[in-house]
Amino acid sequence: MNIKKIMHVENLTHFYGNQIGCKGINFDLYKGEILGIVGESGSGKSTLLKCLSGEISPSAGKINISLDQGGVKDFLSLPEQEKRQLMRSMWGIVHQNPRDGLNLRISAGGNIAERLLNVSEKNYSHLRNTGKYWMEKTEMDSDRIDEFPIGFSGGMQQRLQISKILSSNPQIVFMDEPTGGLDVSVQAKILDTIKSIVRDINVTMIIVTHDLAVVRFLTDKLLVMKDGIVVETGLTDRVLDDPQHSYTQLLTSSILQV
């Protein structure tokens, strides 16, 4: 089977003044792959995600992306309009805090509809059905489609954010600590939901987290970051079961063995 490479990152570097954000990052991302980025606080993983998703423009390096329609493009030199268009349809970010990704003043259905309207869907009943479909897919009660997300629990808001992003059938989804602020049982349920959906629709994902359980559960490949550089990379099971770098060894051994 020929697997398509959809993102190629070369020597990606970002400085905040003299401070290193991330430095010399290289990796390839293939279609349907789930890449985890782990590391402690301040290790540059969020900086890396921001560079990849176009939120900040890196000091140096190259990001080549290949889109479904047509060839390879240099992401960093795309005009702002195309970057925004990508973020609004073909790509998507799931923020740690669902309030960053949702509009709390509009209903759950409206939040999902916004994403679809960005790709010029102008049929009300279709918007409605797609909204309900994705709410059910993320194990929400689709009867609550007209309720406002402000009345949802944290876990529900996160589910809503995920269904909003996935509703436009994106090529790449960026997740920044998707289960960050949630309690353990809700975390587990959401991870279950994410896992069943991604296998279902074959979406490509980059997940940033400090939670090794999340990457073990979801990801295929892993980048371990420390002080802005990648110290170890490989298949998730290999990295976690047979860590080579001393920092990764420290990281894996710091999980409480109950």
Binding site: R84, I106, S107, G110, E114
Partner: peptide, 19 residues
């Protein structure tokens, strides 16, 4: 306006129809 991103306006109409 510059990028012709007008989804918000339709979201407003969507909200009125749904309510």
């Amino acid at each position: 306006h510059a990028y012709k991103e007008y989804a918000l306006m339709h979201v407003k109409l969507y909200e009125e129809i749904s309510q």
